[in-house]
Amino acid sequence: MQEILQYVVSGLTIGAIYAVIAVGFSMLFNSTELINFAQGEFVMLGAMGLVTLWGVFHIPLVLALLLTVAGVSVIGFLFERLAIRTVRNPHPIVLIIITVGASIFFRGLSMLIWGKDAYSLPPFTDTPPLDVFGAKLLSQSIWILCISLVLVAGLYFFYKKTLTGKAMQACAINKKAACLTGIPAERMVLLAFILSAAMGAVAGVIISPITMCSYDMGTMLGLKGFCAAMLGGLGSLWGSLIGGFLLGVLESLGVGLFTSGVKDAIAFIILLLILYFRPGGIISAKSVRRF
């Protein structure tokens, strides 16, 4: 029984990471109907940014956090301006290749800047692991859980209560109609890009103490985050959050109750099942929008 609890607790930690990445995917998809294959690279940039600012230059943690997230947001801004806005034929396949190209580019750039070695960081606060009925929970995991929940709540508030947030949603529902009502649609897309890059960076920043950071850490995290977003329902914030946690717990239980060889397969089998039987995700009931 204690093992099962430990699997769940471990799963929640991994799940929180997937959740934050998934929310980044979902946000962007919500406003632009675009899947950014470079999302995992934003996570990596966030982690490496913190390694540099906090680990190497010893800037105070909070400041380093904010600087990193701001820096990656600027990269997201540039990416949208230079690579996405300029596309003449925004067909999904073309956009997929562009974002894949961008992810290779970011990875190559990070390899030049930070080298090929991995880095590690100490946890934000140095307290011993928490004991939850015999299962061990790292203090950093609590940070991850709290920050991801606060972020999603913040985003939810932003979408529901602020004018800009509502305008972004309007763009997502119908871009032309939003334009007619005077919403600057292009600026909303740009904002969505910046926010989703920032979400990626936050994911990278908060996970950097529990994992090892290297230039190639982003690809698999990005794909898993994507599966989580699919699982919860692409475009739904709360869905993505729950999808992330669910995926993490299922993976962890899969390791515990079956065998660890199939761990990665679990995420993708779930992805296929969801796509085949409930393409809207487990939360959202709306039908899949078709291109």
Binding site: G11, T211, V255, G256
Partner: peptide, 16 residues
């Protein structure tokens, strides 16, 4: 047990 080269957490395997 096994783990992926880029995995971020192996507590489940260790618990087992």
């Amino acid at each position: 047990e096994s783990f992926g080269a880029k995995d971020t957490d192996m507590t489940a395997q260790l618990t087992k």
